[in-house]
Design a protein around this nucleic acid. Structure first.
Length: 722
DNA sequence: TGCCGGCCGATTTTT
DNA sequence: TCGGCCGGCA
């Protein structure tokens, strides 16, 4: 071995603990890395990949699969930073599958340029399938979607479903499922679940291909293995069947995607599947304080279906996990916003702060409160951007250019911008196309006789010509293609005209072009198809930026894999966290507990769990019940901070404005001044007997606890702070 | 054909 | 609360 390489390896192993080192230097055979939160998993995984590339195999023969694009990017960067030639395939499961299906489209029986349907498209397609099956009114698209998704995640095809269907409801469903598949076929479209299932089925069936891929990827690494579903599991197994070099990493306690078919058993039975497996347990936590870890550990201990593990840390105790109760959800939001605002004023970096919640709709009150306090934030909602009308419009044009049989996209743009093609004409076109057994676009661009369309024929012709002229975009790199279509489709004119004062749509379109440019820079060889695929597979977390002085808001699901100095989890209420639906038969409190565990273990130094006693959901304010999870946290690691008082008329301050006869005026985040320590901020309040104690963090960095009644503390209003 | 207003219905989490 | 859809009107 070169001394240079040896030095690099030594440097790489430097500072790793025993189990970490074992995982990094492991080469042959199956490896299971059970990694508790904050145990340096990413570090281990990237170092192992680099180590493999240096000692054992060419980088391009390593395949690493993650769950989000963000994780992919991070992993690539970190491997690069280790000075190992890149060339490793790092990809999300869905992107890897999409790519495989395009490369081997023929063998998979697919069109190379297939469209990936998003949720809305899928629902539209299902709506049509339901109508075609003569069952409209009896089935909702969402209802059928749920069952189809579940079926696909179990790799049950429409035919297979048919074989086992007996109840009348099932027989109805099979009709829909089959028709849905026909529509997908006709429009050369795949849904998210197809990407995984088709690859799993392909590898199962096509031995030659399986062998080829297994040969290519001598080492396969699957991250977040606890969240794999049946097709993903199958793919992992099939790709490594002969060489056995499968490295699975994950933590059963962080399995939070059961609802989309993830099977926690996949990781729990890894050792049974692979008797020769090496198992490494990473249990030392480098992220959180002792109190946070103790609390999280106590919570997760409430689960029965788990692998016992011992989390430990050498970190200091830190401050206790705060539990805060408020009267209204608005109080919760306001207190939070005030506290954060004070922290930022006091010099904290906003990007170290995250607010986590169970459901997206909880973000709204928080956003409003943050806006009021002038706190800048970012919200992990990448998907939302791509759901905007103007964005979907352009993407629909591109989709039609790339995949001319993409009917959903075509119907979206046929009269956008308005060009006088109404529903009657559209219906005639759809019927005519079906009768002639061609796609609508073929009908338009062929020599078909359009006279039955009457006056509309001319307009339809113009549309067909527009599409032909837009085909020039296909020759351009993604950002230019995008700009070309925006400008020549009439969309820019349409949106520019629409909002002269508030031209947000134009801003979004421009932002989309920027995003495409960034993408093109990262992947210079990428085609328009690649970019469309990328756009179809963005996840919420992908849009979270690392720097920028912004507080981050996101769902607990999106927070997986991230860490922050300060974490707030809001809405700890029974039915919300743990989430439960009224009609829910399959509520899984263990998964909810894991979700809460994931959230808590994101925090490095400060963790606050809060709830409101009244919360409005879907327009109705209801009294809530405290989350049972709160009662599972050990007293030793937790403090119950003062709750926002009931709404009562405010008492006036004492004449000298100093001692609070009304303790209610003191809340978390209150700014204070002390004669010797200077400016500080209330970090916690504890009510014991007759006294109220406040913990104050001073600007100097020192931290002191005072009995409020005796302390020489003066309340400072925000306006007083320069 | 296109726009507007009202009503109904849904609603976890995400690739 | 909000957004999608439908029906009526210009």
């Amino acid at each position: 071995m070169h001394t240079g390489v040896k030095n690099t390896i030594d440097r790489m192993l430097d500072g790793l603990n025993e189990p970490q080192r074992a995982a990094v230097t492991h080469t042959e055979g199956p490896l299971l890395i059970l990694a508790g939160p904050g145990s340096g998993k990413t570090r281990v995984v990237t170092h192992r990949a680099a180590h493999l590339a240096l000692t054992t195999v060419e980088p391009w023969r390593i395949l690493a699969i993650t769950f989000t694009n963000k994780a992919t990017r991070e992993m690539r960067e970190r491997v690069d930073a280790l000075g190992v030639a890149s060339g490793m395939t790092v990809s999300t499961f869905h992107a890897f599958c999409a790519r495989t299906l395009r490369i081997f489209a023929n063998r998979a029986g697919l069109q190379r340029n297939f469209t990936i349907l998003d949720r809305d498209d899928r629902r539209k397609m299902l709506k049509k399938a339901i109508t075609d099956a003569g069952l409209s009114g009896h089935w909702t698209p969402a209802g059928a979607e749920r069952i189809i998704s579940d079926a696909k995640n179990e790799m049950i095809s429409a035919e297979a479903y048919d074989r086992n269907a007996s109840e009348w409801r099932e027989l109805q469903f099979v009709k829909i499922y089959k028709q849905y598949e026909v529509l997908l076929q006709q429009t050369a479209s795949l849904d998210f679940d197809d990407l995984l299932m088709k690859v799993a089925l392909l590898l199962e069936k096509d031995t030659a291909l399986r062998n080829e891929l297994e040969d290519q990827y001598a080492y396969v690494l699957i991250d977040e293995y606890q969240d794999t579903n049946a097709p993903q599991y199958k793919i992992a197994e099939l790709l490594t069947r002969d060489h056995g070099n499968l490295c699975a990493t994950g933590d059963p306690d962080q399995s939070i995607y059961g609802w989309r078919g993830a099977n926690i058993e996949n990781i729990l039975r890894f050792e049974d599947d692979h008797p020769a497996a090496t198992v490494v347990r990473l249990e030392q936590n480098y992220r959180s304080t002792q109190h946070i870890l103790t609390a999280a550990d106590a919570l997760i201990a409430g689960n029965i279906n788990r692998k016992e593990k011992t989390l430990w840390t050498e970190n200091d105790d830190g401050s206790r996990v705060r539990i805060v109760e408020h009267e209204l959800a608005d109080d919760e939001a306001n207190a939070l916003a005030r506290e954060i605002r004070a922290q930022i004023t006091g010099g904290f970096d906003a990007s170290d702060i995250a607010i986590l919640y169970r459901i997206n709709s909880l973000s709204r009150v928080i956003e409003e409160a943050l806006l009021r306090e002038g706190v800048r934030y970012q919200i992990a909602r990448g998907v939302e951007f791509y759901n905007r009308k103007e964005i979907k419009d352009v993407l629909a044009y591109l989709r039609v250019l790339v995949n001319p049989v993409d009917e959903i996209a075509l119907l979206r743009i046929i009269n956008t911008p308005a060009r006088g093609i109404g529903s009657t004409t559209i219906q005639r076109l759809v019927d005519a196309a079906r009768q002639a057994n061609v796609s609508i676009l073929e009908l338009l661009q062929g020599n078909s006789d359009l006279t039955p369309l009457g006056r509309s024929a001319g307009k339809v012709k113009i549309f067909a010509e527009l599409l032909t002229s837009l085909q020039a975009a296909l020759e351009l790199p993604p950002p230019e293609a995008l700009a070309y279509v925006i400008n020549h489709s009439g969309l820019r004119a349409m949106y520019a005209h629409e909002g002269e004062i508030d031209n947000e749509p134009i801003g979004n379109l421009d932002e989309l072009v920027s995003a495409a440019s960034a993408f093109a820079q990262e992947r210079p060889d990428a085609s328009l198809v690649d970019w469309l695929e990328h756009a179809a597979l963005v996840s919420d977390v992908d849009c979270v930026v690392a720097e920028g002085g912004l507080v981050t808001l996101m769902t607990l699901h999106a927070a997986k894999g991230l860490e922050f100095e300060t974490v707030y989890i809001i809405g700890l209420e029974d039915g919300l966290l743990p989430f439960r639906r009224a009609d829910d038969v399959e509520a899984d409190d263990e998964e909810e507990r894991r979700l809460c565990f994931v959230g808590m273990t994101r925090a490095k130094r400060r963790l606050t769990l809060s709830r409101a006693r009244y919360r409005m959901l879907r327009g109705i304010t209801e009294r809530t019940v405290r989350s049972p999870f709160l009662d599972e946290l050990p007293d030793s690691a937790v403090e119950c901070a003062a709750r926002t008082p009931k709404r009562t008329p405010r008492k006036s301050k004492t004449p000298d404005g100093r001692l609070p006869d009304d303790i209610a005026e003191w809340t978390l985040g209150t700014l204070v001044e002390h004669p010797t320590d200077g400016l500080g901020q209330v970090m916690s309040m504890t009510r014991g007997g007759k006294r109220t104690f406040v913990e104050v963090l001073f600007k100097t960095g020192s931290r002191k606890t005072f009995a409020l009644e005796f302390a020489d503390l003066r309340r400072v209003d925000f306006d007083e702070v320069g």
